[in-house]
Write a protein that binds this DNA or RNA. Sequence first.
DNA 1: AGTTAAATTAGAATTATTCTAAATTAGAAC
DNA 2: GTTCTAATTTAGAATAATTCTAATTTAACT
Lengths: 138, 138
Amino acid sequence: MSNHRPFANALELLRAAKLRPTRQRLALAKLLFEKGDRHITAEQLHDEAAAASIPVSLATIYNTLHQFVGARLLREVVVNPGRSYFDTNIADHHHFFFEESGKLMDIPSDKIEVTNLPQPPHGAIRRVDVVIRVAPKG
Amino acid sequence: MSNHRPFANALELLRAAKLRPTRQRLALAKLLFEKGDRHITAEQLHDEAAAASIPVSLATIYNTLHQFVGARLLREVVVNPGRSYFDTNIADHHHFFFEESGKLMDIPSDKIEVTNLPQPPHGAIRRVDVVIRVAPKG
DNA sequence: AGTTAAATTAGAATTATTCTAAATTAGAAC
DNA sequence: GTTCTAATTTAGAATAATTCTAATTTAACT
């Protein structure tokens, strides 16, 4: 049983997430999930849709990305002020962030060990994000 | 020899950072560094300055914060899209992020163990940020 | 005091994102 | 297949954080 590609196609995936399979959601799901793990911004997805002749407004891109995050089909990654990345890899993992290029790269969670986690003074731990910031060699 | 409070006053601190000790920079350094460890936004600092009757424009707040980051007097922490926090604690450490309130809390680096760090495919590791995201208990 | 480069400023510009209200569409009911 | 209704999409305006610009002020040197 693999965690990868849990749905045969976009339609099934939207059904399972209880999102109406509209033209734009189907098209965006395909763009997002049929190319392996990606880290994409709203603007980039909008451009990809345009390139694929899928007419979809930027507002819908944002709506859809947030709905997908809510449905746990995507994860939002924040590494840069003023710009969100959406990660199609929803497995537990971490990131390299390359400061020069602004690119992200996954690090599977078994490649880093984070131990000795302190308990928060209140509330519950929802997630632990590790970002390794990488700069060009001095 | 402690790493804490390395300068007796704002003037010394600016001199060491090779920043001209102007009225605004002196006042902002005092606001930032004379109250222990803090996580503050540009807007908040602007409000504090106003409350202390220090006339300083928002542009200067931003300029100064970034200069301080460049001089390693501050660290920028990104946990939220579209808003930067500036951290007066420049020692190696990590953060709790409370999603309900938007507040940050320091975790000294000796309270978490991050081991087995993978090497990046190119470049050098500049920093490792661990953010523990905390939500109200379900 | 006079000079000059650095710093500050108000306000405009930019960027990412969200909101609004109108038009379209998916899916259920007939 | 039409009709109906609520959900979705949309263009464009609005917002929020930040950066830029060009003019003014100031720190520090002579």
